[in-house]
Design a protein around this nucleic acid. Sequence first.
DNA 1: CGGAATAGTTAGCAGAGGTAATGACTTGTG
DNA 2: CACAAGTCATTACCTCTGCTAACTATTCCG
Lengths: 153, 153
Amino acid sequence: MPSLDQHVRSNAGLATELRFSVMRLRRRLVRERHPDNDLSLSAMAVLWGLHRHGDLTVGALAAREQVRPPSMTRSVNALVDAGLVERLPHPEDGRQVVVRLTEAGRGVVHADAARRDRWLWRRLEDLTPEERDVLRRAAPILQRIAASDPDPD
Amino acid sequence: MPSLDQHVRSNAGLATELRFSVMRLRRRLVRERHPDNDLSLSAMAVLWGLHRHGDLTVGALAAREQVRPPSMTRSVNALVDAGLVERLPHPEDGRQVVVRLTEAGRGVVHADAARRDRWLWRRLEDLTPEERDVLRRAAPILQRIAASDPDPD
DNA sequence: CGGAATAGTTAGCAGAGGTAATGACTTGTG
DNA sequence: CACAAGTCATTACCTCTGCTAACTATTCCG
């Protein structure tokens, strides 16, 4: 039974620990959605992407979220049905589809985002400023790893 | 369209960024399983828990992984079918069930874990030592947040 | 001893991802 | 210019992994 500390000191150990931490925290986040907010975390991520980057194609959204195009099509369908985004033809390329936030969608981003983050936000408040700083610096690194190219082999 | 930097500086912004980073990285990790390794990430997490802590009950495993007991029962079933763990009666409490790693299971932990972490490990190698240090300190914080008590309301 | 609480399981359901195949459009080449 | 090959989105279908509710067996406690 190896010591945790010694294990985490190596890169391989860090990989293991980081992997399980990420998986557990994600399960927890999915579970902590507020009852009166019926949007899934994936849906909210799409709205945030559009909010931050403006109009995006289905393919671009899929790449950002690390999902396959069919999965993104389904997420977009749900958002269209809810009236939060609209599909527009691409001005130059007839194959692509541009997804745009509607006024209602913009409202949801502003109103629901805060509520949806409440659980995690409270947990962050319980941390020391130093710990929050670690996470502040970790977030973009995690993001970069998630977005990195697949292995060549 | 708000600036990312300014957004992340607030705790609410940090919550949002951290949430999406965790979700994206998890999707990526799930996808990077090696073709000749058919164990799911959840199954591997159970094996690791047993490897590190010795025999555990179903309930203890469920608590560790932030999962409900029925979900853990199913994971354990899959591992029993694969011959990687065995169910034993609890010595003192007839309601509980002790889960123990078999020799085969121990082999899988050693052999497959390294291979499974390969993708993330390579990504970690590309980071600067400072960035790795940030993640080394972030991992237990993420873990603690995942394990924290639910909101009282 | 009998009722309440606890641990695990079973059954059934939902969310969210994947691949394969298809259709529509674009691009590049003979 | 025509047509073959490639690309983007979609559709259809499947899997994995989580959940709740209900049930069983056991233990605890009054």
